[in-house]
Computed example of a mutant assay.
Amino acid sequence: MTRWDDLKLKLIERDGSTCSICGKTLLMDLRLLRIEHIKPVSRGGKSDLDNLRIVCPECNFYVTDLREYEFVDYLVCLLRMNSTFSEVQQEISLGYGQAAYAKRIDIFAQEIKNNNWSEVYIECKSQRGFSLRRIEDMLTQLKTYHTLIEGKRLALAFPGTLPKKTIEAIEAQGIEVWDIPFLSQRFENEIPYVEHPVFQPILLAALAKKQQSPEEILIQKLRNCQPGKEDWSKYQKIIGEILERLFCPPLSTPISERSDAEQVNRRDYILTNYAESGFWHFLRTTYQADYIVVDAKNYKNDVGKKEALQIANYLKPHGAGLFGIIFCRDSIDNGCECTLREQWTIHRKLIIVVSDRDVEQMLLNKSSNGPPEEIIKQKIEDFRLSM
């Protein structure tokens, strides 16, 4: 057993078997677990137990892309410059004894509201957007925090924007959402004076924004399109517009209603993938995604096994490749889920499902100059790690 494996076991014994960032229950396979420094080594952090925590592979991947502590530091600067906040502190332990190590929250502050000081605990994430499964994992984590702060205010802060329904679901749990619209309005006077190469431009752009963006217009068009047979062609056209807005370039303009040589299998859209770098290049080389095959299902009910097989039949290693996306209004049934798993396990055909809420998240990412493919990446990771 290596030194790092021994550290992982000690951290699990101390903190439990959940990811300290997203709150997801971890598989007890030491090879899949990652150790994260709470205070980075580059900033003087040490590799001892007090400065280490266990995280899942996907959270470990994301914090190395844009590290969470950068966003925490940036938000702390905004809070300390704002006269309505005081007693701003970082890395606050929740609970007592050994359990306190496992439950740390990023920021604590007091805010003057209605002439009274109100305590607020702020959990920060560096991602610009989240898949539905990531939201569920975070809510599980935040609910645990709620039980430890005895009715005090709890906020989720991140440098992005969420779909309206997702925000409502989080706020229904008594959790405040400090997203880009909130932060840009709340710290309007401080943002011009707190520099950061990523976060400041995002917030300044939100401050300058006066008209609806093309992405917001597409979100409204999607919401106005009713599920069902009557609007199937309208929905398909909207999905084509959304695909082009989100991913072209680097992908080519969507080719609509393309069938195979036998005229048996027809798909709604095909996007050619010639990307030579980045996420789409990774997708092409790893999942044989020379073409992105898309089906749009404007169903009132859940998408089923039949629809999964339809797109799977079009995917061929010598043809369009082995990667596809089903766009649907809400969700899939158990038969569809089992079929998707079988197609991946047996035939290496990777098909992910994207709902209206996922589409809105991708468009919101794009609108705030974030990567819309982040949600595709999360969906793939959620699918692979659930196998």
Rank of each mutant, 00 (worst) to 15 (best):
G304I: 07
L148D: 04
W232R: 15
I38G: 00
E68R: 05
F108Y: 15
V120M: 11
I135F: 00
L322Q: 14
R284Q: 12
L364S: 01
L246H: 14
K210Y: 08
G335D: 08
F182L: 01
A102H: 04
L246C: 05
L30W: 10
I238H: 06
I375S: 13
P57K: 04
M28C: 12
E176F: 12
C225L: 11
Q226E: 09
L154G: 03
P317C: 09
Y62M: 11
F182Y: 14
E13I: 10
A312R: 13
V303K: 10
F383C: 01
S367Y: 07
K234P: 01
E381V: 09
R128H: 10
N334E: 13
R223A: 04
E374C: 05
T140N: 13
D358C: 02
R34H: 15
E70W: 08
N115A: 06
R357N: 04
K113I: 15
L32W: 05
N82G: 05
S47T: 11
Q200H: 06
I380C: 00
L309H: 13
I352T: 00
Q220E: 14
I325A: 12
G335I: 13
H196Y: 11
Y299N: 11
F199Y: 15
S47V: 06
Y62H: 12
I255M: 12
F71C: 03
C77I: 09
S17P: 01
F247T: 01
D260E: 08
K8I: 00
S118W: 08
C336S: 02
I35E: 08
Q173A: 07
R384D: 04
L66P: 00
W280M: 07
L139I: 03
K39H: 08
L26Y: 05
G304N: 14
M1P: 02
D268P: 03
I326E: 04
S368P: 00
